[in-house]
Amino acid sequence: MSLPRATSGVIVQQQDGAFFLLDTEGGEVFRVNETAARIFELCQSGTTLDGAVQSLAKGLNAVDQEPDIRADVQRTVEQFQELGLCEPSPSL
């Protein structure tokens, strides 16, 4: 199953080592860490949950942490949806 799609108008911006999600339509700004920024970018690309977990695990050299990563991705995308940063979708 795919991750929920990112809401249009929300962009990722990196500035001086910090990551921000900017809602250019709603005017809200969220400061996020690199993990959250990566997960949001995966939502933008329409990646599947499995693909996102594998991508994060490989990218961060944490293949042995896949169960924890999966749980964190699910929690994070639900938070994105609550904040209006991702479109609503059926529960993962």
Binding site: F20, F30, L56, L83
Partner: peptide
């Protein structure tokens, strides 16, 4: 090492 995602509503 994986670090859990963190989101904080807000900067420079």
């Amino acid at each position: 090492m994986y670090t859990n995602a963190q989101i904080v509503r807000v900067v420079l």
